[in-house]
Design a protein around this nucleic acid. Structure first.
Lengths: 345, 345
DNA sequence: TTGTACGCGTTATCAT
DNA sequence: ATGATAACGCGTACAA
């Protein structure tokens, strides 16, 4: 057995009062009054005995589990997920809530089903986090359990969600290049059909347009969003004439490929070529030489926002007005891969 | 309100039996007998009503929360932690347990607060996972709550723990190089004083010795375990004469630095130089060109082992015999960075 | 100002 | 073969 299991009645007996008084005092019940002397004595004995309310009993009585389920698709695959959890965690702590973790595989819908059959009982709300920004039609199984989506947009239109501002991030990246004097900026992008693809492309186009730079479709090359794809795409972009003096890459892994392409072409970064990535995958961005300037995804903030929103929904009965989504900014992280273009070339 | 909150009495009424019978049937109580007809009817109505036991009530009655606390240091910082969680998760599911997550900051006071926040949730046991393999003296607050350490060795000698086999992993790495015919193998290592440092060095030495290759301390260079450190160390190792034909690197990030050093020296991998890393950080190992052969850390397996061990402890009253640690193997992950040495040189 | 007693939804004991 | 009822530990009307 673990503890002597000190309960509220032990405290009451020890302090010479009733359980009601103890409960009132420890829970700061406004309506009930007790003498300051009693208050002190009860609190003291509670502390001395190391009393803490039994959560199972408390939850049963209050009909509140004080637990939030965090459904995460493939925590394993990405370091990003950790930051989401951290943000959610911190927000949960503010409200005295704890997080129970459920990892879902993306495919098995039956896994999903028995998980939340089990989950429906004990959890007050659910945070559903995906591995990467995408559109999602959440299974009906969650019923009317309050739910907030993280890094995913709800297709049904019922659930609040929070995603990164892909467009704004791309604008910031390209603007950084513009600010250094670049005018010919290639875009090493990807072929996947996800919101990030379209958003980052839109940001790229928009920023160049705002700077009155004519479109040049030959400067946009798409491949798969891995390092080899970045290598290929960069090779292609860097072979157009006149050669671009800077590259904006869809993500840091593609930027890693771009570094290799640059090296093979005898281009030094940032002297001959400036590069900006996206995602701020620190192992890559800091490991590359020179270190990669990139755009950070607001994972911590998304986790935090989602949890706070969920808590707000839990606390207010009319949740309809709380169903709006949020789009969080992606800040620029300056490192060493951007410099002004060379005078010639 | 969430659900109609279908309870056991609803099922009982609907099926025309008592709650006892329902409970007996749904929980497969051996001692209780019921007619097959009743059995069917009860199960059917339970399913039809979508009944599931209320965990809060169940826990209170059973005095078992069916929850395990996972205390993790800085989930954020490493993609590894995710795999630990996954392993623990899968093992927990086998036993019908759920995981409540607490992320601890590394400062002691916060950790203490987090720990007893966790204990107040009445978790049945605790898994304590660190960010990297190290020695640990766990705060006493856990009292006699069953605890298992992941990726950390318990200094107090009371708690079971599980860590990667650093020595064996290094042996495997060096052996792979030996098997390809290399005889002069440099070791790009780190300066930190952690078990991995000593273990990997020991494995390196041991393997060379077993192959009757004379010690050559000039082939071992230590720097900080980041990419720049790897670059510096590799540069140093590759400048000794005769130049080693292969490099074993303390981790993948240092290997990333070694790649750069090799490139600067005009050495092509794997033709002129073979490289093996450690950690199998996929973003790096797969992103490097050529892809890096490396040693994988058994994070999933550690999480799984720890949870299973914890469950075993929970289920048996004499837990002393279950306090032994485990050292799990680190498999080799073959990619493209190892080849036979060139005939000359 | 404090104490008594009930209910939260289960499971387990003991009758019937 | 089934049913009534007592816990589990807490919070809170309501009574004193």
């Amino acid at each position: 057995m673990r503890q002597k299991a000190v309960g509220i009645r032990d405290v009451a007996r020890e302090a010479g009062v009733s359980v009601t008084t103890v409960s009132h005092i420890l829970n700061n019940v406004a309506s009930a009054r007790a003498s300051d002397e009693t208050r002190e004595r009860v609190k003291a004995t509670a502390a001395r005995l190391g009393y803490g309310p039994n959560r199972m009993a408390r939850s049963l009585r209050m009909q509140r589990s004080e637990m939030i389920g965090l459904l995460s698709e493939g925590i394993a695959t990405t370091p990003h997920a950790g930051r989401i959890i951290l943000g959610a965690q911190d927000a949960a702590r503010e409200a005295g809530l704890t997080i129970v973790l459920i990892n879902t595989s993306q495919t098995e819908s039956d896994t999903m089903r028995d998980i939340d059959a089990l989950l429906r009982q004990q959890v007050e709300g659910v945070l559903y986090a995906t591995m990467y920004h995408r559109l999602l039609d959440l299974p009906r199984q969650l019923g009317d359990t309050p739910t907030v989506l993280i890094d995913a947009e709800d297709l049904s239109g019922r659930l609040p969600w929070v995603v990164p501002d892909e467009v704004g991030g791309a604008e910031r990246a390209v603007q950084e290049l513009l600010d250094h004097g670049h005018r010919r900026i290639g875009f090493v992008t990807n072929v996947e059909d996800v919101p990030a693809t379209h958003g980052r492309l839109a940001g790229y186009r928009k920023t160049l347009e705002a700077a009155s730079i004519a479109h040049d479709e030959t400067l946009i090359v798409a491949r798969t969003s891995e390092t080899p794809g970045g290598y290929e795409a960069a090779l292609a972009v860097l072979s157009v004439e006149p050669r671009p003096t800077a590259l904006f890459c869809y993500n840091d892994r593609m930027a890693m490929g771009a570094y290799r392409a640059a090296a093979e072409l005898g281009l030094r970064i940032p002297d001959d070529l400036s590069v900006v990535g996206f995602d701020n995958q620190e192992i890559v961005a800091e490991g590359l030489f020179p270190a990669l300037t990139t755009i950070a995804l607001p994972h911590y903030e998304m986790g935090q926002w989602a949890m706070r929103r969920l808590i707000a929904i839990l606390n207010s009965s009319n949740s309809t007005e709380l169903s709006e989504p949020a789009v969080l900014p992606c800040p620029l992280v300056r490192r060493e891969s951007v410099a002004p273009p060379r005078p010639t070339s």
